[in-house]
Design a binder for these strands. Sequence first.
DNA 1: TGTTAGCACTCCGATCTTCCGAGTGCTAAT
DNA 2: ATTAGCACTCGGAAGATCGGAGTGCTAACA
Lengths: 355, 355
Amino acid sequence: MGVHGELQYPLSERAQHLLKVLVERYIREGEPVGSRTLARESGLDISAATVRNVMADLEEMGLVRSPHTSAGRVPTVRGYRFFIDSLLKVEPLAPGQVRRLQAEIEEAAAGSDPHELAERASGILSEVTRMAGVVTVPRTEFRSLRQVEFLPLSGNRALAILVVDEREVQNRVIETGRPYGAEELQRISNYLNEHFAGLTLEEIRNRLVQDMEETRAHMSRLMEEAIEMGRRALAAPPESEEDCVVSGETQLMGFRELSDVDKLRQLFEAFEHKRELLGLLDRCVRADGVRIFIGEESGYEPLGECSVVSAPYRVDGRVVGVLGVIGPTRMAYDRVIPIVDVTARLLGAALNPRA
Amino acid sequence: MGVHGELQYPLSERAQHLLKVLVERYIREGEPVGSRTLARESGLDISAATVRNVMADLEEMGLVRSPHTSAGRVPTVRGYRFFIDSLLKVEPLAPGQVRRLQAEIEEAAAGSDPHELAERASGILSEVTRMAGVVTVPRTEFRSLRQVEFLPLSGNRALAILVVDEREVQNRVIETGRPYGAEELQRISNYLNEHFAGLTLEEIRNRLVQDMEETRAHMSRLMEEAIEMGRRALAAPPESEEDCVVSGETQLMGFRELSDVDKLRQLFEAFEHKRELLGLLDRCVRADGVRIFIGEESGYEPLGECSVVSAPYRVDGRVVGVLGVIGPTRMAYDRVIPIVDVTARLLGAALNPRA
DNA sequence: TGTTAGCACTCCGATCTTCCGAGTGCTAAT
DNA sequence: ATTAGCACTCGGAAGATCGGAGTGCTAACA
C-alpha cells in the first residue's frame, strides 16, 4: 500500500489530521462536513477560518470537494485512498469476534460442497458487515483425488464421479467416443485409482499428458483408454458465472447514497453479470492481504458509488479463491478491513485438508 | 377457477365489458382510467356520463376504486380476480415461441443437476416474461435409484453417493456408528445395488423399513448393516431454503409501482427468505393448471403489490415441483399465463426419464 | 327507466416564490 | 500564520398559485 496515495506536495501534519477527522466524520454521519464542525471535532485549538484555509488546500489537491458552494466538504476518491493508505489504523478484530466468525465458518465448512460453502461464507460476510458479501468458489486444482468412478450412460456418454479430498464430490458427463460397459469402466477406474489417487488434480492432469506422449508405444489398450478417459474427466471445467457468489445485496438498499432506483438497478444488474466481478476480484489475487477498490478505481461503472474490500484466501499457501465485501464508498473501513482479512484466513483454514 | 370471482349481484354484459376494457387499458398504460377515455376505448356508443354511472356500480361492488377524488379508476384485487377468472381469454402460445422455449429448456436440462436446472428454468422464465422467475427444485422421491456407492471417511462417517436416473448424483455424509473399511462398504453397496437398483427412492425407503421389521430374525449381519446404511443414505433430506430458486429480481426494479426503495427492499428481503415463498408455492400443487395469486391474496405482506402466476410441473403424472413468475399486479396476464403453463409442461417433459 | 349534457367541485401535481440557515471566500486586523 | 468579520451563494423546505383531469349530481330527454 502507499503507492497509490502519493501526492505532489507533502501534507502538513495538521492537514492530514484534519483530513482524517473529516473522513471519519463523513463516514459516520454521511453529510458534508463544514469548517466549524471540523474545527470543533478536530481537537485542535484552531478556528473555523483556519480550517477553511486548509480545506482550500485539500480541495486543490483533489482530496476533498464540496458538493456545492455552500455545503461542507466530502472526501473524493483520492481522499479516501490517502485516508486508507496513510491515515487509517486498523485495530485487529476482537478475539471474541474472531471466535464467533471461526465457529460460523467451521460450521459452514462441515460437510458442504465448495459452492455451498462459498454461499455460506458470503452470507456470513454480508451479515456481519451489513453489506453485500462476495466469495469465489475455491479452486480445486491443488487438492488431491481420492477416488474416481465411471458409470455408463446412454449413448456414447459416461458419468465420471470424482471424490476429492474426503469431502467433495464432482460429477461430470463425458463423451466417450463409443459405448462402454460397466465392467470395462470398472477396470478403467481401477487403473486410474491405482495410479493417481492421492495426487492433486493438477498433477494428475500433467501426468496424463506426459504418460500419453512418453509411453504411447508400449501402452496397453486398457492404459490408453484409461488415460483418455481420465483426461476427459479431469479437464478443467470452464470458468462459470457460478464460480462467484454474491449475497446480501439487499443490505445495500439501506444506504442513502444508493437510494436512487436507477443506480440501484444498475448495481444489481452488475451483480448478475458475475464475469466482470470475477475479473475485478482476480486482480487482487496477487496482493498479499486485503485489497481495496474505491469507487471508480474498480474501473467498473456500476460500482461507481461503491467500494470493494477483498482478500485472497489460501490453502497450503496457494491462493484458491477470493472473498470480499461490497458496500458504499462511505463505509467503515476500519471495521470491514479486519473482518475481511480474518474471514479470508479462517476460510482458508477451514478448507485445509484435515489431519 | 371461477369460484373466487362470485359476486353478490350479477354484472350486466356492458359492465363486464367496461371492466375488461378498463383492466386491459390499466395494465397497458399504468394510469388510472377516466370515464371519457373508457367511453371512447370501449367501442360502445356510450357517453362518459353513462360510464360514470357504471363505474359507481363497479366501485360499490369493490371491483374498482379511484386513488383519489379526481383520478380515473383502477382495478382492485377483486377486480383483477374477476377479470382473470371470467373476462380474460388466454390465447395459446404461438408455436414458434413454444419451440424456442422448448429448445432452451432442453438445453438447460441436458447434463445439469436438478438445482442447476431449476436455476436455468427460472432464468428462462424471467428473461421471457421480463419479470422475476421462481422454480422449486424437482423432488427426486419418485425417481429411480441407479446405483449407490459408499466411501469411508475419517471417523465414524461415510460418504454415500447415489446415482439417480442416469443424470443426477447426490452425495451425503452419513454417520455410521462405527468405522467401516472400503471392502466392507463395497459389499454393502453391492447388496443394496442388487436388491434395490431400479426402484424409486420412495419405494426403497418403504421397503427398507419393511424388510427391517419383517425379517429381523433371519437376517445376516451384512443385510442388517446394509439396510441400516441404506436407511441413512436415503433419509429424506431436510427441506432447504435452497429448494426454491428465484432469479431476475432485478427486472422488478423497472416497474413504476415498485419505485419506492423501501417497498422494493421488503420485496427483495422476501426473496431471500425462501421458506415463505415455498409455502406459497406449495399451495398451488393441488391445482391442476396455472394458479394465480393477486396482491394480498398471497397472504404475504411484502408481495402486496405483486402477483404470482404459478403452475406445478409433473414427471410421470406426479407433481415434482412448482414454477412461476412474480411481477407487479399490473402485469400482462394474457401473455404470462400461457408462458408459465407451457414452461411447466416443458420442464416436466424434459425431466422425464429418457428412453 | 336508462341515458345524456351541463356544471360546480375536488384534488393532484407542476411550477414558482419565498425564506432561512449553513457554509464559503475574501479582507483586514492581530 | 491565524483569526474575526462580512457579504455572498446555494440548496432545500414550506407555502402559494394554477391548470387540468375527472368526478358526482341534477335536470332534461328518449
